[in-house]
Amino acid sequence: MACVIEKINEIIAPENLVYAKSPLTNDDIMHYCPGCSHGVVQRLIAEVIEEMGIQEQSIGVTPVGCSVFAYKYIDIDWQEAAHGRAPAVATAIKRLMPEKMVFSYQGDGDLAAIGTAETLHAVNRGENIVMLFINNAIYGMTGGQMAPTTLVGQVTSTTPFGRNVDINGYPLKITDLIAQLPGAAYVTRQSVHTAAAVRRAKKAIRKAFEIQRLNCGTAFVEIVATCSSGWKLSPVESNKWMEENMFPHYPLGDLKDSKRADSGLYRIKSK
């Protein structure tokens, strides 16, 4: 036993460090529930900002919902937007300070229900911002009500017998809608349920920020996420449930990867 401790102490030396949290992430204990995907995504954002060396340029816009307090955890300037309005807030920040790196961070209720207009129009204008979209198919903060992305049959506190399309309509694939818009430069759907998925998601977030530097349109990253409290499953069970149920409806991968595709647009022939 003494031998093992000795060996561990030998390994735990600064020169052997492979991973430690980003210095942009503070020591506050996150308010999220155990296993919540928000924590992972926010850590990735902090890492990307640190690795790109853009702390001084970065301005984040947080939503209303579980991630309302995202501003507590990453050491950059933030603006807290009203429910659904983050893309409008981010639009103005970027337009007035084009040299900044501006991103919005929203959940499904914020981005795809109350803020649908702001979301679609910001992308449609091709705002040079990064939009991060955390889709866990439920309203976490308010206690597990139906979200626009709630799956058919999924039980929530406002669909206690499962989402019924006759009453509640269909789960909104807003990322697919966004991919259709000429203003979108990069649209991808990722997840953070395994180490490999986390590494892919980080690459996607990095790419989104790189695209902002090119000024060629909106970079939109959806993260299919879990909400173990809302789903009433353990974090591990949530990941399994997500793989089985969320991924078939919200398949992972890039939906669009090109610069603004406005070259083929119809323009009127005379004024």
Binding site: Y19, V40, V192, V198
Partner: peptide
Amino acid sequence: NGCANCSAVCPDSCISVYRL
């Protein structure tokens, strides 16, 4: 083996990983 999979999935950034 210091693969850092644990720290990758940790939502609370509470794991540091060392490898030798």
